[in-house]
Amino acid sequence: MSRITKRFAALKADKRAGLVTYVTAGDPDPALSYQILKGLPAAGADLIELGMPFTDPMADGPSIQLAGQRALKAGITVDATFDMVRRFRKETGDNDTPILLMGYYNLVYQRGVERFCKEAAQAGVDGFILVDLPPEEADQLKPYAAAVGIDTVLLTAPTTDDKRLPAVLKYASGFVYFVSVLGITGTKSASEEAVRTHVERIKRHTSLPVGVGFGIKTPDQAAAVARHADAAVVGSAIVDRVKAGLDEKGIAKPDLVPGVFAYVKALADGVRGVRKV
């Protein structure tokens, strides 16, 4: 059983939804980024998405675009991202919190899909979320990821109708990521009613857990999602806390890391406040 599957089973036993936190690897610099990664579980993250910066993040709004630019400028690489995960597993001894790499397919393709999957697995990565790899192209990745026990979390969107859902689910494992709004990350928010309807619809097609993301900015919104989904995913709003911790020259202020953790804790409190039957 993968770490992701185990974690969702544990959440279910706890009768609560999970909090998935997204941070961009290397933002604002590799050292601070590692500090953030290390402390996320204690702050309340149940699963961690680690963004791999890409020069052309077409599905991302301004917050994550800027985070990627900060990280690239600070010299983040794919190797350094794998190292962060390796260090996390070794230094924290945390062998339970799943870490998923999120990003765009070209970085995987350039390294060679098979090699990328192997190295990611060796580093302690549990899942991939590749924004620009829909089921139509996912067969390039799936066999290699499956061979090393890495889950492929596919995205579904409001435009993914009942007819299409099985095609998406065919390649999905770990959980299903529902993109709750039409648009890029960190912009619009979905209504609770829309989240409920779509999650119910997806659950009619699969027994996989459903995580909901895009546009969740406050503990209240996270709680609203937690009422209906198995996990709430928060990205841009956390990344905005990193930005808020930088001065006008882009130098980190002392409260950057604590500021991120305080915000993650507030989100976790929101999510954990919702009891599931």
């Binding site: 829909p134 995205l155 579904t156 993914t160 998406v168 993109v179």
Partner: peptide, 20 residues
């Protein structure tokens, strides 16, 4: 039928766009 010219081409887009 999948939009490939040899290995080239294809449909590498976000799921939101795929149905459209």
């Amino acid at each position: 039928e999948r939009g490939h010219f040899g290995i080239f081409g294809g449909r590498y887009v976000a799921e939101t766009l795929m149905p459209l």
